[in-house]
Amino acid sequence: MHRDQSPLQARTAPELVPSLFLDLDQMLDEFTPLPIRAEFRFDPDMPAVITVEFLSERGPSLIWRIGRELLHHGLTSMSGCGDIRMWPALPRERPSSWLLLESQEVEVLFEVPAAPLALWLDTTYRVTPAEAEMDGLNWDGFLMELLEGPATPPE
Score class of each variant (00 low, 15 high):
Ile63Tyr: 01
Ser61Phe: 11
Gln5Asp: 06
Met27Thr: 01
Leu101Trp: 01
Arg92Asp: 06
Ala10Val: 08
Pro35Gln: 05
Leu137Asn: 08
Asp43Met: 14
Val49Ser: 09
Glu105Tyr: 06
Pro47Gln: 08
Leu34Ile: 04
Thr123Asn: 06
Arg92Gly: 12
Ala13Lys: 08
Ile66Phe: 02
Cys81Lys: 12
Met27Asn: 00
Pro153Asp: 00
Gly59Asp: 06
Phe142Thr: 15
Phe40Met: 05
Glu15Leu: 11
Arg58Ala: 14
Ile50Met: 07
Glu15Asn: 07
Pro153Lys: 06
Leu100Ser: 10
Asp4Asn: 14
Thr123Glu: 04
Ala48Asn: 04
Gln26Ser: 05
Phe21Glu: 07
Leu20Phe: 03
Leu75Lys: 01
Trp139Phe: 14
Val108Gly: 00
Met144Val: 15
Ile36Gly: 08
Asp29Ala: 08
Gln9Gly: 12
Arg58Gln: 15
Glu93Val: 13
Pro95His: 05
Arg68Thr: 03
Asp135Leu: 08
Glu111Gln: 05
Leu100Gly: 05
Glu69Ile: 10
Asp122Trp: 06
Thr124Pro: 04
Ala130Lys: 14
Glu105His: 02
Pro14Val: 05
Cys81Ala: 12
Thr152Tyr: 01
Glu53Asp: 12
Glu111Gly: 00
Pro91Asn: 05
Leu24His: 08
Arg41Ala: 13
Leu16Gly: 01
Leu90Glu: 10
Val127Thr: 13
Ser19Arg: 08
Gly141Asp: 03
Leu90Pro: 04
Gly82Asp: 03
Gly149Gln: 04
Thr152Cys: 03
Val52Gly: 05
Glu145Val: 14
Asp23Ile: 02
Arg94Ala: 09
Phe54Asn: 13
Pro91Gln: 03
Thr128Ala: 14
Met144Glu: 15
Thr51Gly: 13
Leu143Cys: 13
Met134Asp: 13
Cys81Ser: 13
Gly141Ser: 04
Asp45Asn: 13
Gly141Thr: 08
Met134Pro: 02
